[in-house]
Every structure is written in C-alpha cells, then in structure tokens.
Write a protein that binds this DNA or RNA. Structure first.
Lengths: 145, 145
DNA sequence: TTAAAATCAGAGTGAAATAGTAGGAATTAA
DNA sequence: TTAATTCCTACTATTTCACTCTGATTTTAA
C-alpha cells in the first residue's frame, strides 16, 4: 500500500511551486535542491506534470516551471493521478477501466476495494496545494513565536 | 497506490474461511481452487496469517485452516496489515516506526500522507469478515429473486 | 501398519517495476 | 554569442513480485 517516489517527490515539487506561485518561473534545479531530489529524475516527473496540464514550462535561461492554475485549483489527487495513474488498490477497481473479474469475487471483496479506493480519493481530492500553503504558514508562525 | 497480490489473495482466502466458519477445517487446496489462486503461493500467505494469529491450522489428513476468531472479530485491516505490513502511503508516516524526515517536508506533505493513511485505515478497520458474509448473503438473495 | 492427505519450511527463479543516470538537442535571456 | 535552462530518449543496476518446487512432518482412515 505504498506510493512510489514519483507521487512522493512529485507532490513535494508541486508544493514548492505553490509556495512560489506568482513570482515567475522556478527552475527545476532549485526545486530539486530545496526538496532534495535528483534533478535528472525530477525532470521526468515535471514532464509528466506538464503533459498532464498541471504545470507550464518556460524554456531558456531564467526559465523554469509555474503552476498552470492557482494553488487552490490543484489538489493532491490531481497530482497523484498523473504521476501514479488512477487510484486503485487492486486492478479490478481502477477509477478508469472497468476490468473483468472472475465470478468468485465479483460481489464481495471487490466492494471492499471500492470503498478503500473511495476513501483514498476523498482525502486526496479534499486537500489543495493552497491548503498546504496555509498549513505551512501556520507552522512557520508556530515556530516563530 | 496498489496492494500486492498478497493482500488481494489473502483477503479472498480469509473471506472463504469466513463463509465456512463453524464447519471444521478447510483445506488450502479447496480454498485455492475456489478462489483461483496458486496453491503453492497461498501456502506462504496462510503461513503468515497463522503466525499473525488470524487463522489456526489443523495438520494431517482432513486437516486445513480455520479462523482463529469469529468473523465479526476480524476486519480487513487486520488481514492487510499482516500480509502487507503497516499501512503507510510513504515510509515516513508508517503506522509503526516514526521515521526521520529531512526538514523540508517535516510539516506539510507529511501531514497529507498521514491523512491518507488514516483514511485508508478507517475504511479497512470498519469492515469485518462478518460484514462481507452478510453482503454475500444479500447478493445471493438478489440473484435468486 | 501403511498409504494418502494435509500442513510446514525454506530455497530458487524469471519477469517486471523502481529509481535513478546520462547525453545531447532545442530554446531563450542577457 | 554564451550560459542557463527545458526537452527527449535511451540505458542500467537493484529490488520486488509472484510464483514454483522439493522435501519433511503430522494425522486420519482403510
């Protein structure tokens, strides 16, 4: 029941972009350094996020990446679905394709996984990058006082 | 965000044992055939479930496995934790060990994964094998009428 | 007593996924 | 023109996954 590093690193990177939202493009290199991720690897993740429409890129010197939409219009579920694929604890209850099932578990264990899937989706879809930024701010305040 | 076949097959097997609860030991071979799982592979899963205290084994001819507790005292979370380990979308929020985190995501992405973890656990811990048996019965009724 | 039916234990294996690493082309600001 | 940057594609070492197999032990039943 683990996310791969794609989702893990990808959300860190998107959160980093959200913290810099409105201040121009952020270079991949700086994100990688702040978040302690391999730059080469992060390139692949950013390519996926760009193709998925969550970030826009600015090429050339002083270029970088910016969120394609404001932070309150991007939630964790969006990021995870692009980097890890549809949410599905087991293949036969994937959010996308309705896969075939052999008769025995058509009814029962399948409904369990559907509930797990929906539980995961509900949490992920209820947290936006803006929520995360607000929480960061709250934490920063806490440390300061 | 996938379960491995250990959890997938393991729950099927436990559900099978629950359906036969009270009727003596059920052989691994018969479970494997009904649930369409490799017998060799299922042996490993049953060994883990036995060591985890969820099933008891009866050796020798006419032997097999029985649930160690009634179906309403075993829930999906129990099965999954034994076969897949502690619930943890990322390592640093495992239900067991409190792992170290580098400073950057100490506060924020970490809390996201904690919420996801708790969402998964809440669903899994709220469904017992007895619930599944009741649902099976309901389905069977539906098909009959 | 013996044969068959089971669990128990542990080792081996091929394929796939994971987590990077790398090189070079294209683009753009200064 | 040069340096900074994204873009694209291929490569690779390691680990995990999903079995597969062999043989030992235990127990029932004929």
């Amino acid at each position: 029941m683990r996310l791969s590093t794609r989702g893990h690193y990808g959300l860190k990177a998107m959160f980093d972009l959200a913290l810099h939202y409105g201040a121009g493009p952020v270079s991949l290199k700086s994100v990688a350094e702040r978040q302690n991720i391999s730059g080469y690897y992060l390139e692949q993740l950013m390519a996926a996020l760009r193709k998925g429409g969550l970030v826009k890129s600015v090429r050339g010197a002083q270029g970088g990446y910016v969120l394609a939409r404001p932070p309150d219009e991007i939630n964790v579920g969006d990021v995870i679905r692009i980097l890890e694929g549809p949410i599905a604890p087991v293949e036969c209850v994937s959010e996308l394709k309705v896969a075939e099932c052999d008769q025995a578990d058509r009814c029962i264990t399948r409904t369990v996984w559907e509930k797990v899937r929906d539980g995961i989706a509900r949490v992920m879809d209820s947290i936006s990058l803006a929520d995360m930024c607000r929480e960061e701010e709250r934490c920063r305040q806490g440390r300061k006082s």
